[in-house]
Nucleic acid binder design. Structure first.
Length: 573
RNA sequence: GACCCCGUAGCUCAGUUGGAUAGAGCGGCGGUUUCCUAAACCGCAGGCCACAGGUUCGAUUCCUGUCGGGGUCACCA
């Protein structure tokens, strides 16, 4: 397993402290934390030792600092803390070389997950319903988590598990007979219109709703005519979805749906009947378990005999294990389904499936304020279109002013628009709700996706103007505080990627990239006022090479991180 | 009513798993371009970390309670 520069120094510092204190290094390592930048890079607080040693923390810290010696670290006591600082050398060269030698793979670790498999259920829209803007949460989260696990050497089985089976098909089918135009059966937009109308009518009219249910029962019974119609709707939807995914640069290992488990329901129910058992309740079939007070039972069959999504998820979970032998099986699904997954996972456990605890519900919060004035949901495609329009104005300006060159301004606009929208979502911690705001999603200033892309593009161009990234350089020359600050952000990527994987939290990567871009922009801008602080400083080839090497490391970090987030990295913008 | 999230600057959000002076973007005010891309950079203003207890050397962070917001609670997915 490869070790990052940062974790290596942290481990060495912890080991030295542990030796001095006569305790296991593992106990100390958790207590070694990043220091306030003014004080150093690593810190160890001595407060907890005060009681046992019967000495004041500052005295303990001073004593420890005196006795420790770790190659590559400057150790010093500040008050009750023992702090360690990375000196310019060898630290600077180590960080730059780690990033540059890894290139676009920087931050990853192919050995970390070698031989392991993760199944990820994400995006999973319902067929015949529009893809609303809120779908970007599961879609981008899942996509990023997949990218991150891949970078850590896992085999990833991404599954777009379509909601292609259920009563809503009855609604579309029955609605199509009323409102549909047979000539437009392959028009996704038309199906959505039909669904919206039918859904509204079913809510007001019980007879209409019953017709839809009846249609779904025909589907479950294998009625050829019903299934033929369903298949047409399904094909139309999938074609429509693929266009949107292509726009976002997302591909799935598997596109399948709940219909996959049609015909396998009885087998699953038989299996559950053996352990832990099933029973009838209010005409429906439920899993026979002791439920908490106020907890609804797990429903396997409705009182009309048709199955429910819990039944299908139970079948799907097993099917996925049989196909992939996963070490983890993730469900990137909104928080409001927490109870459903808790119950499904519990049922798997009660069925004595040994892998039941490898399943994880990666829940995320809601996006508020999504309705348009007419009360309809904002569509993802519309947001992408609007963003591209706004971006293209700025792109045209920049091209005309000669600031950038591009063969394809439209493609560039699309890349930047995608960056804005993807990052606007991914920067949020997944558990928290956030508020959708057109102006915020479509703003390209401040800490946004385009900010990161812009920082990357500037790095690319300053490297080009400097004659490319140097093969050799003298790291000892990089002594400006802004240079050292930038290095410390570049250094963090491997740790952050690992944390993001463990916590299923791409926002950690997103936030780090902001810190990298911010440190880079600050450094870069110094040269506007002081020519001797330019990257491509004149009359000092050695210094210029060193600075270009650092910029190259920053460029690599941004490119690698943005790629993990699924955000394009244009060279000009 | 029960259970699950959440409450941090005017707004939108971070806060490295309990440590040093709580940060960023937007918005506001003031600056920076004959000079590597101003989609950038710098400065100023803005905080009872919802409230009250508790644990601890130390709490925005952990526990309990109260208040406030959102969600879920068997035949939709």
């Amino acid at each position: 397993m490869s070790t990052s520069v940062y974790s290596r120094y942290r481990a060495a510092f912890a080991q030295a402290l542990a030796n001095a204190l006569g305790v296991p290094a593992a106990d100390i390592e958790a207590q070694v934390k990043p220091a306030e930048p003014a004080h150093g890079d690593l810190s160890f607080a001595t407060f907890p030792l005060a009681k046992a040693q019967k000495k004041a923390p500052p005295a303990i810290a001073a004593g420890l600092a005196q006795s420790l010696s770790v190659p590559g670290l400057e150790i010093k006591a500040v008050g009750p803390y023992v702090n360690a600082r990375f000196p310019t050398l060898p630290f600077t060269a180590e960080v730059i070389d780690a990033a540059r030698s890894a290139g676009i793979r920087y931050g990853g670790d192919e050995d970390a997950g070698r031989g392991k498999t993760v199944a990820i259920d994400y995006s999973s829209p319902n067929i015949a319903k529009p893809i609303g803007f809120h779908h970007i949460r599961t879609t981008f989260l899942g996509h990023c988590i997949a990218n991150i696990y891949r970078a850590l050497g896992w085999r990833v089985e991404g599954i777009n598990y379509l909601g292609d089976w259920g009563k809503q098909f009855g609604l579309v089918a029955v609605g199509f007979q009323e409102y549909g135009d047979p000539a437009r059966i392959d028009d996704m937009g038309h199906l959505v219109e039909v669904y919206v109308k039918a859904n509204k009518r079913a809510e007001a009219e019980p007879e209409f709703d019953e017709k839809a249910r009846a249609f779904f029962r025909r589907m479950e019974a294998g009625d050829a005519e019903a299934l033929k119609l369903w298949n047409q709707f399904r094909d139309t939807s999938i074609k429509g979805f693929k266009k949107i995914y292509a726009r976002m640069g997302i591909e799935f290992e598997h596109i399948e749906g709940e219909s996959r488990y049609q015909g396998k329901m009885d087998a699953v129910i038989d299996q559950i009947a053996k352990k832990p058992g099933v029973k009838e309740s209010q005409g429906a079939l439920i899993v026979d378990l002791t439920y908490a007070e106020n907890e609804p039972p797990i429903l396997l069959k409705k009182n009309d005999g048709s199955t429910l999504y819990a039944t299908r998820d139970l079948a799907a979970a097993q099917d996925r294990y049989e196909r992939f032998q996963f070490d983890k099986s993730l469900y990137v699904v909104a928080q409001d389904q927490a109870l459903h997954f808790r119950q499904v996972f519990r049922a798997l456990k009660e069925m004595d499936l040994p892998w039941a605890d490898r399943t994880v519900h990666v829940a995320f919060g809601r996006i508020h304020g999504m309705s348009t004035r007419k009360g309809q949901v904002v569509q993802l495609n519309d947001v992408l279109d609007e963003a591209r329009e706004r971006v293209s104005v700025k792109v045209r300006e920049n091209v005309e002013a000669g600031r950038i060159q591009t063969d394809d301004a439209d493609a560039l606009s699309e890349q930047i628009a995608l960056g804005a929208i993807a990052f606007g979502d991914l920067k949020h911690k997944r558990a928290s709700d956030y508020t959708f705001d057109w102006d915020e999603v479509l703003s390209f200033e401040g800490h946004t996706g385009p900010y990161l892309q812009y920082a990357h593009a500037r790095a690319v161009n300053v490297l080009r103007k400097g004659g490319g990234a140097p093969a050799s350089y003298d790291a000892a020359l990089l002594t400006l505080p802004e240079e050292q600050a930038l290095l410390r952000e570049i250094m963090r990527l491997p740790e952050v990627v690992r944390d993001a994987a463990e916590q299923y939290e791409p926002s950690l990567v997103a936030r780090l990239l902001l810190d990298v871009a911010s440190a880079l922009s600050r450094y870069y801008t110094l040269g506007n006022q002081e020519r001797d602080k330019r990257i491509n400083v004149e009359g000092n080839d050695a210094l210029r090479s060193a600075r270009l090497a650092l910029i190259d490391a920053a460029r690599v970090t941004l490119a690698a991180g943005l790629t993990l987030l699924g955000i394009p990295t244009p060279d000009n913008m």
